[in-house]
Amino acid sequence: MSTDTAAAPAAIDESRSDYSGAPRRSIASRIVSKVGGGVVQVVLILVAVIWLVPTLGLFVASLRSQQDDNSSGWWHVFTAPSQLTFKAYGDLLAKPDFVDSFWNTVLIAVPATLLVVGIASLAAYAFAWLEFPGRDWLFLIVVALLVVPVQVGLIPVAKLYGWIGIFGSIPSVVAFHVAFGLPFAIFLLRNFFAGIPRDLLEAARMDGGKEWTIFIKVIFPLGGPAIASLGIFQFLWVWNDMLVSLVFANTSSQPMTKWLQSQMRQFTGNIDILAPGAFVSLVVPLVVFFAFQRYFVQGVLAGSVK
């Protein structure tokens, strides 16, 4: 996880400033800024600790025995070191329904991501580079759909699925995610594709390239960074979703989030399942986050600032 830190700074650290480079400072103001700097350091260290402790707590709790977790908080591990063990993870991975839910999560998140990327790139290309009547209006509708809450879709789509007979299946969950992921995806990609130099497309068209070939050979490769951002975003969104699967998935198609939710009833008694379970569910997103941080941050920036 930490191997990527060398590449990471460039991604997240776009805001180095040169406050310190201000010319002609009096000694007094330098002293003030030194002391102020110390305060800032302390405050930010404190903030960083506050941000780390909850996750650390979950991780330590997942490594302690159930008896320990039920009798004392995880930080007692520092004062009264007891046996840390991966037993809870072993027990969890021995539960077939948890393992199934893990694979269900993969089977939902991967297709939902690929489909959104594929379908949205096609549409975004049309919005950016093809001429057709009503294009601007149609795109405004897509922009409007960006903020539609999934809640308005749940009841009718559940009815629709029941009618077609796919309610509770993995494809039904995937389709819902794809549909509600599309507005953002089309918006993001269209903005990126529109920035591709016009000459490239004109030249390709002049050479007699078919639109489909241009899309595959010119647009898709050039859209790489935006597609990567979108893919990561969509993947995390679907992987982390709980509401959609609560409604559309059943016990054989449920992802980890739904399975874990069903274990929440007895929070304290089930901590030996919940702590490692939550940790397993967040390991994949964290790996994705650290591995593709640059794209992730770009996606955040593109999605809101653009």
Binding site: N240, T257, L260, F279, V288, V300
Partner: peptide, 8 residues
């Protein structure tokens, strides 16, 4: 925490 699910 942005990468972590709300459930977690």
């Amino acid at each position: 925490p942005m990468a972590v699910s709300f459930l977690a």
